[in-house]
Amino acid sequence: MLNLAVEQALNGLQLGVMLFLLAAGLTLIFGIMGVINIAHGSLYMVGAFLTAYTVAKTGSFLLALLAGLAGAAVAGMAMETLIMRRLYARDHLDQVLATFGVSLCMNEIFSLLFGQRPLYVSIPPLLDGSIEVVPGVPYPIYRLAIVAVGLMVALGLYLLISHTRIGMLVRAGSTHRDMVRALGVDIRSLYTAVFGLGALLAGLAGLMAGPVYTVQVGMGEQILILTFVVVVIGGLGSIRGAFLAAMVVGLVDTALRAVVPPWLKTFMEASAADALGGGLSSLGVYLLMALVLLVKPRGLLPAHG
């Protein structure tokens, strides 16, 4: 029982870390530019596909890593220069629709290039196998590595935000854009860079997702909506909030998935219990979001004020 709890907690942490990488980029971009990017999930998909493809073609995980990261960052910066730049002054609805259009296009491009069937990525040999985290609980090294990378990124973002100029902008919030301009910061390249950074984080999540989840068209949207839940719970524009909420959502979601179906099976037929249990456990985080909205409409750790 305890062993199961440890294992599920680690699974939850790992999902939380993935969600944090996505939510951090999303909320960073919103915090600085005030735009919302529905195609953020597509950048995650770019990272996953390019990594999977490069591994399959070259067998080199290092090359694949570079391809995934660079691909996502370049895609993100291209998106910023070609489309987002024209939308900063528009309302959120326009931003959402345009980026929604982009995500539709990206999905079709990827299904043309790579087909509809999911790609599978093996775990890099270096990280293959398991270790016992506590006696009697073997846990995959790869998943531990994901958690480690995620926590390192979180630390890096914390340092970035508390000690750099970009961080100052995040703290000032997008309402202070004129002030930033007055400071003489080259706002255009700054925006492109921030967008690239957000895309990089999404791509990183995508490339790490490969061996754990399936790599397929539409993978981005699935996790994107969960990311929205994280961002809303944490407080829009707040990186700290995103971290806290990502961990909570990761743990709650994983815990419910581990607990609800077996419980249903005690009084239901097995296959029906699995289906219903899966559905009910995915409701959990949304209900959590509803609860947070009732108590703190601006999220757990709102960004400003």
């Binding site: 919302i36 959120h92 609805l93 959402v96 909506i225 929205f228 839940v229 961002v231 809303v232 289906a275 219903l276 249990g277 899966g278 559905g279 009910l280 995915s282 409701l283 949304y286 209900l287 979001m289 509803a290 909205l293």
Partner: peptide, 18 residues
């Protein structure tokens, strides 16, 4: 916007499991 999207998706999961 994100909340309305999320709640709709919640119903999607609910009905997918019934």
């Amino acid at each position: 916007l994100m909340i309305t999207l999320a709640f709709a998706q919640m119903l999607f999961f609910l009905f997918s499991s019934l």
